[in-house]
C-alpha cells in the first residue's frame, strides 16, 4: 500500500470519529440546556473547551450561548473541527484513498457528506437540530457498518482503525482534562453528591451514562467515573479500550509486514502503563498531570505511526 494511502485512511477515520464526537458534544449541551436552563451557558463553554475550539470561537462571538455554539460546532467552515468541516475532510481523504475502499464504504461516506451538506446549508433550528444529530449518528453507523461488513481485514483496515482509536482516545482524554477538577476528591468530599450537571456532561459526552449506571447500580462518584473512563476495558470509549485496540491493530500490521517498528514499542509502553496502574494511583499522582502526559504520549504515538509507515515522503 502507498504510504500516502495509509495516511489518507488514518485521517479519514480520524475525521469521521471527530464528527461523531463533536455531534455528541452538541447533543450533550442541548440536553443540559433543556433540563437545566440556568446552567447551560457554562456547560456550552466547557464543551467548546473539550472540542479544543474555545479560542477560535471567541474571535467570532461574544457569548457562548446555545445558538452560537451549536452553529459553530456544527456547520462553521472556519472551524476545522466542526461537524461539517470534519465530514468534508473525511470525504476528501476518502476520495484520495478511493482505491483502498470498497464501493460500500465510499458510497456511505459520500452519501453522508451529501446529506449533511444539504441539511447544514442553513442554520439548525430547535426543531430540526435533533434530526440533524440523528442523521450524523445514523450515517456514522452506516460507514462503520460498511467498513466492518465489506472490507478485507488487511493493512487498509488496520490504518482505518488506528485513526478511529487514536481520535477516540484523544477525545475521551480531553473530556477528562476539561472536567478533571470536578472529579478531584478534594472538591467533592466522599459521601457528598457530585454536581449532577457535571457528571451528566461527562458521561453523555462519551455516550456512557447508561452503561455506567448498569455497571455501578447508580452510585455516581467522581472516582467511579474517572475509573470508568480511564480503566474500564469494557467501555468502548475508555482510554484502556482505545489503547488496547491501537496496540492490537499495530500488532496486526507488525505481523502482516513482518517488521517491528518504534511505534509498536511506544504503543505497548502506553498500554502497559494503563494496565498496571489503578485509579487510586492516578489520583495520588494527580489526575491532571496524568491526563496531560497521556495526551502528549498519544500525540507522539500518532507522529511515530506517521513516520514508521511513511505517510508523507
Amino acid at each position: 500500500m502507498l504510504g500516502k494511502t495509509a495516511g489518507g485512511l488514518f485521517w479519514m477515520f480520524r475525521h469521521l470519529e471527530r464528527a461523531e464526537n463533536t455531534t455528541r458534544l452538541i447533543e450533550t449541551g442541548l440536553r443540559i440546556a433543556l433540563t437545566r436552563p440556568d446552567r447551560s451557558n457554562d456547560e456550552w463553554q466547557s464543551l467548546l473547551k473539550t472540542a479544543a475550539a474555545e479560542q477560535l470561537f471567541f474571535t467570532k462571538y461574544e457569548t457562548a450561548d446555545a445558538a452560537n455554539v451549536v452553529d459553530f460546532l456544527l456547520r462553521d467552515a472556519t472551524n476545522p473541527s466542526s461537524v461539517q468541516s470534519s465530514m468534508a475532510q473525511a470525504r476528501q481523504n476518502a476520495r484520495m484513498v478511493r482505491t483502498a475502499l470498497t464501493r460500500e464504504v465510499w458510497e456511505a461516506v459520500n452519501d453522508t457528506y451529501m446529506q449533511l451538506r444539504s441539511t447544514l446549508a442553513r442554520p439548525a433550528t430547535d426543531k430540526n437540530l435533533p434530526d440533524t444529530i440523528a442523521l450524523v449518528r445514523q450515517q456514522s453507523a452506516l460507514v462503520r457498518g460498511a467498513l466492518h461488513g465489506s472490507m478485507l481485514r488487511n493493512d487498509v483496515f488496520d490504518f482505518a482503525r488506528l485513526g478511529t482509536f487514536l481520535e477516540r482516545a484523544d477525545n475521551t482524554a480531553r473530556i477528562l482534562d476539561v472536567k478533571y477538577y470536578v472529579l478531584l476528591p478534594s472538591i467533592s468530599q466522599i459521601g457528598s453528591n457530585l454536581d449532577n450537571v457535571q457528571w451528566e456532561t461527562i458521561l453523555r459526552a462519551v455516550a456512557g451514562q447508561r452503561a455506567y449506571s448498569w455497571l455501578t447500580q447508580g452510585a455516581v462518584t467522581p472516582k467511579g467515573i474517572a475509573d470508568f473512563l480511564i480503566f474500564d476495558g469494557r467501555m468502548p470509549r475508555s482510554l484502556k479500550f482505545a489503547l488496547g485496540k491501537l496496540q492490537s491493530n499495530l500488532g496486526y500490521l507488525e505481523a502482516e509486514y513482518g517488521s517491528t517498528l518504534p511505534c509498536h514499542a511506544m504503543a505497548a509502553r502506553l498500554n502497559a502503563r494503563l494496565c498496571t496502574s489503578s485509579i487510586d494511583q492516578v489520583f495520588e499522582e494527580g489526575l491532571h498531570e496524568f491526563i496531560l502526559t497521556f495526551l502528549q504520549d498519544l500525540a507522539a504515538l500518532g507522529r511515530q505511526i506517521e513516520t514508521d509507515y511513511r505517510f508523507i515522503g
Partner: peptide, 14 residues
C-alpha cells in the same frame, strides 16, 4: 509518491 531508486521508478509504500 514516486522517485528514482536503483534505476527504476519506485513508489513509496508503507
Amino acid at each position: 509518491d514516486l522517485r528514482v531508486v536503483d534505476g527504476k521508478i519506485a513508489m513509496r509504500t508503507t
